[in-house]
Amino acid sequence: MERCIPRTTAAAALCLFALAATGIAAANTNSPTIRLFPTTVVEDLRQTSSVAQEMETGLQEVIGRLDQQQQLYLESKCDGAEDDSGCQRLAKQIGATYLDMLGIMEERLPDMEHTVNNTRLSLEKRLRSELGNKMTSWTLQETLLGGNPPEGASAPSPSLRGRSGMRLSERFKQYYKLVASSSSSTDQSLAVLASDIYLDMEETSTLIARTREEIARATLIEQLNQSFGTITPEMMEIVGGVKSILFGDETSNVVIAGPPPGSVEQAYRSPLEQ
């Protein structure tokens, strides 16, 4: 309901009703509510998740094939026997599959880039207006603290920061679920969530742009390599990188134990407390 521009009478009536309802809802709450996730942002997130899933599905098969071919290459003891004609044939097959992978990425990345950028820009606008222009550092702090949390309640900690080593689509799906069910969330976790997603999108956006630039170069090099039937270390590195980005890096899931739980004594409230 952030922009309600009616085109027909019926739409205008709906708009009025919605605006009135929003007004009533706003009047009923004591503290100002921050609006970081309008429906457009939620929809952008859902779409990004589905585009990421399509790309993964496309790549999964080709990466599986690459793995098998590499395995065969190693088992055939081709490492160091590049002059062998059988090994050259295997290397060419691997190169061709690698080109397939680059092709799929080249085809799907523009969609991905588009949806990621849409989400990033919507969030950027929201963050700037809701947290940047409407809040001071003190009100921001109070929003993050969420008033006075009940005694002994553990603080909500939506510390995602997109470093979870999970599938790209799974990550966006998680974001979507978190945001879509945000009616039950408090403003403090939404502010952290919005910041987290925004920074993640920024990084993803830059990486996609860089990857798109690199794909052209990598394709050209591989096309040249095809004439010689060699496997370059760079090729293996790129495949490994793509796998870890798309399908997660298991080593990053190590969890370190948290601090011991705090004292449960009745907390003292000073008259000086702000």
Partner: peptide, 12 residues
């Protein structure tokens, strides 16, 4: 949290 939110807000 303030560090994260300020990073995002200031970028925006």
């Amino acid at each position: 949290e303030v560090e994260l939110v300020l990073e995002a807000t200031c970028t925006a």
